[in-house]
Design a binder for these strands. Structure first.
Length: 185
DNA sequence: GCACCGACCAACTCTTGCAT
DNA sequence: ATGCAAGAGTTGGTCGGTGC
């Protein structure tokens, strides 16, 4: 869940409408990461998502005066602006949308940074154990789990990749996860 | 007993239409 | 332009039947 307690979005938007650039900066500092994630989910490309975020904040700045608190929360309005900006870009078909191969690495690095030094140390210990447990699994179960949770494939896609029935893939994943849990303790 | 397989169900996401 | 609700579609997880 996104931390938003204690921040007055309505007030910040009102300040933006009055020309207070600091208010826009506060919104950006607080929610840019989350908003980038929203844009990323729609456009699926980091660079494009950053462009969307930039354009969306321009819109927020120029249209803050049109925001009406009586019609909804300020935070919801901000997220809607970003979402609509991303959707309009996708629908316009102006850009080719493809899978960003660097994204997973970036997200992983960001997650490690967020976790902090102590947690990162524990994370690496757990990853080492996880690797050992994965090695102990059957090849098909290991591949199924990796396709599902590393590559982000749906069960149907995995079944297609492995040329196996959907039900079988589901069984492999379930049993593989059970084995991993037992192995990890 | 174990693995495979498919049907079923719940949860989630997306789309659409309507009201403001 | 935005928010909201309802319906449709998709997905993942569980369970029971079947065959080796």
């Amino acid at each position: 869940m996104i931390a938003s307690e204690g921040f007055d979005y309505d007030g910040a938007l009102a300040a933006c409408a009055r020309g207070d650039q600091g208010a826009l900066r506060r919104i950006y500092d607080r929610d840019s990461r989350s908003l980038l994630g929203v844009a990323l989910r729609i456009v699926r490309h980091r660079q494009i998502a950053e462009d969307v975020l930039h354009d969306a904040f321009l819109n927020i700045w120029t249209r803050a005066g049109s925001f009406d608190p009586a019609r909804g929360a300020g935070r919801g309005w901000i997220y809607s602006v970003v979402r609509n900006q991303a959707l309009s870009l996708v629908r316009s078909g102006e850009r080719e949308i493809g899978v960003d191969e660097e994204l997973l690495d970036d997200l992983g690095a960001a997650a490690a940074a967020d976790a902090g030094m102590a947690d990162a140390f524990e994370l690496h210990q757990d990853l080492g154990r996880l690797h050992d447990c994965l090695v102990g699994l059957d090849v098909v179960k290991r591949n199924s789990i990796l396709y599902a949770y590393v590559d982000g494939c749906s069960h149907s896609e995995i079944a297609e990749r492995l040329n196996s029935p959907l039900g079988t893939v589901k069984t492999w994943i379930r049993r593989g996860l059970t084995a991993l849990r037992e192995c990890m303790g």
